[in-house]
Amino acid sequence: MSIIYVLLPIALFLGFGFLALFIRMSADGQYEDLETPAYRILIDDEKITSENQLEKGSIHVS
C-alpha cells in the first residue's frame, strides 16, 4: 500500500495543475463567451483572394 504515498501526491499535483490553468483562463476572461467559439470553429481561415474580391480597394481609411 505504500505506493499510495507516491500516487497521491502525483494525483493531487495533476489535479491542482489543471486548477491553476483553469484559474488563469478564467482570469483572462475565456469563459465569458461560451457561445461564439462553438461557431468560430466552423469557419475556415480562408483569406479573401484576388479573384473573389471586387471592391476591396474602395474601402480605405480616409
Binding site: 465569458e32 463567451d33 461560451l34 457561445e35 461564439t36 461557431y39 468560430r40 469557419i43 483569406k47 479573401i48 476591396k56 474601402i59 480605405h60 481609411v61
Partner: peptide
C-alpha cells in the same frame, strides 16, 4: 461571426475583430 471577424481584411489598420454572439 465570420462576416464581422473579416474586418481586418476589409478595413485598413484593423488588427482584430471579435464578436460575442451572446451579447
Amino acid at each position: 461571426v465570420w462576416l464581422t471577424e473579416k474586418l481586418p481584411e476589409l478595413v485598413d489598420q484593423v488588427q482584430l475583430a471579435r464578436l460575442n454572439l451572446g451579447t
